[in-house]
């Protein structure tokens, strides 16, 4: 949610209108949480229709695949290879096939970057910086309505003082990983 607000704020400060949609409530108890962010002029609702999203940032592999119908055919995906295996799988009520999910993403998305997010977050030094690493990765893409610095500045407005350094590091790790890729 912090990531979606940071994106919205960065766009807003460049004169664009914004809409975000957050999932709050029961889904936050180990369920899937999705945020939509829209920026531009003459916007309607906050929910992105199917095949209209330019970017998909997926912090969990199966959830990235679940959200894929929202992506434009020419859209870009930054997908963490991280998995969160739900209890239903351990109980044998569902299956989680990591390889099949990765193959599917490779086959059906044109612009795909996988990030070994667990490792990157470890390097950043705080377990909750996955979203910030993803924002750093996103910031390297061309065509965004804000600069890398503007996104980082917006992000830091939502971060308490003592966690700023760690978040800057996480953001930079995201940028560098993407540029090195």
């Amino acid at each position: 949610m912090m990531a979606s607000r940071a994106l919205a704020l960065a766009a807003m400060e460049n004169g664009l209108s914004v809409r975000t949609s957050e999932v709050i409530g029961m889904a936050q108890r180990e369920g899937a949480v999705t945020s939509h962010v829209r920026m531009g002029h003459d916007l309607s609702g906050a929910i992105i229709p199917d095949r209209e999203a330019d970017f998909l940032l997926g912090l969990e592999l199966s959830e990235t695949v679940r959200a894929l119908p929202k992506l434009k055919p020419e859209g870009s995906v930054i997908a963490a290879t991280s998995t969160i295996i739900p209890v239903s799988v351990h109980l044998g009520l569902a299956e989680y096939n990591q390889e099949a999910l990765m193959d599917y993403l490779k086959k059906y998305t044109g612009k795909l970057s996988f990030l070994a997010l667990d490792d990157l977050v470890r390097r950043a030094g705080h377990p909750k910086t996955g979203n910030v690493v993803m924002l750093g990765a996103l910031a390297t893409f061309p065509g965004l309505p804000f600069s890398r610095e503007q996104l980082l500045t917006s992000l830091l407005k939502y971060v308490p003082e003592k966690l700023k350094a760690i978040n800057i590091r996480a953001f930079e790790i995201g940028c560098k990983t993407m540029e090195g890729a």
Binding site: R29, E30, G31, P86, V87, S88, A94, N97, Y108
Partner: peptide
């Protein structure tokens, strides 16, 4: 005409106690 391709089976992710 843009029917999405069928993804692999996705795991059920219902909310559970933390």
């Amino acid at each position: 005409n843009n029917k999405a391709t069928q993804p692999p089976v996705l795991p059920l992710r219902t909310p559970v106690l933390c």
